[in-house]
Design a protein around this nucleic acid. Structure first.
Lengths: 163, 163
DNA sequence: ATAGTAACTATGATAATCATAGTGACAAGA
DNA sequence: TCTTGTCACTATGATTATCATAGTTACTAT
């Protein structure tokens, strides 16, 4: 693609976010990181993205201070990727995306069978559904407050993907 | 690009959303529609996207039942684009994007000067900041409940763009 | 010495995007 | 009527991001 106008400097916050998030690969990689899959090969396998794309996007996410590259082993040298606070704050976006799709973009295999990921409020245990305030205790919900629980069907799909 | 794996059928709701929203042009066009800019030329001018891209994406949004093409004039025939309920439900995603950027992706010109878009709760008038429940009256907030008010600086940028 | 694992990099084909220009249908003014 | 203008697009060619596949580096394990 040709050089496109850069929106990082626009005053519109949606434009600035779009510069980062308007990219399939970035969204999928963020999903993996939120699910706790931090290793390169796992991310590549679960997203179906080629190693070049994963590599390029992870570099970018690190340079934007959204992810952090850490060594989890010295011999052999092995690295993985962790979300920073700035990255963790993107949870609200992904959560909104999940809520929208569960309501409006149906998965053929699971229509009417409930959400593919259930979220439970860690402090009170309630299933929060697609809410942003806990229906059990009324607290506002963010990353860290919720525990995601994939359905059996989604787990199966993930295993099929990652082998 | 080569044909990429289609995620519309994945069980993961984030994957399904990413298939739609992981595209800069789509996010920018949705922003315009949420701001009430419905005409083709306005959308093209405000997003900086070429007419081909705008045309292709609008067609797709219509076929996905996210936007609707309406005639607003018969002679001459003129069309514009409106969000459907499915499209309006994406507000939560864009709102989360806005909140993230206002907090974490600073605009050079407006650092520390408050948000580029203020949102006021229609029913109680409170400035909701970046909250998902109204700090004034405690109601949960969605599209239709909020009235966006661009800052002077953002208005100026929009005028500069659209002419 | 061979095979295996993890995190990448290299290469060539394909197709999405951009900039620019043009089209069709009509309205308004000279 | 002739020109100019508006709006919603479509057409064309150059550029480049993405993909599939294969290869590399640096180790460990057998």
């Amino acid at each position: 693609m040709p050089k496109r106008a850069d929106l990082s400097d626009t005053l519109c916050p949606v434009g600035r976010s779009a510069e980062l998030l308007g990219d399939r690969a970035v969204l999928l990689i963020l999903r993996e990181l939120f699910f706790g899959r931090r290793r390169f090969e796992l991310i590549a396998a679960n997203t179906g993205l080629g190693p070049q794309l994963v590599s390029a996007r992870l570099k970018m996410l690190v340079s934007e201070d959204i992810a952090e590259r850490r060594a989890y082993s010295e011999r052999p040298v092995r690295h993985d990727y962790w979300l920073t606070d700035k990255g963790k704050a993107l949870f609200d976006v992904l959560y909104a995306m999940r809520n929208w799709a569960e309501r409006w973009a149906y998965a053929p295999a699971e229509t009417g069978e409930g959400p593919a990921i259930r979220y439970l409020h860690r402090t009170c245990g309630a299933d929060v559904g697609t809410a942003t305030i806990c229906p059990g205790c009324g607290a506002e919900l963010g990353y860290g407050d919720l525990k995601g629980e994939p359905s059996q069907a989604l787990k199966a799909e993930q295993i099929a993907r990652a082998g």
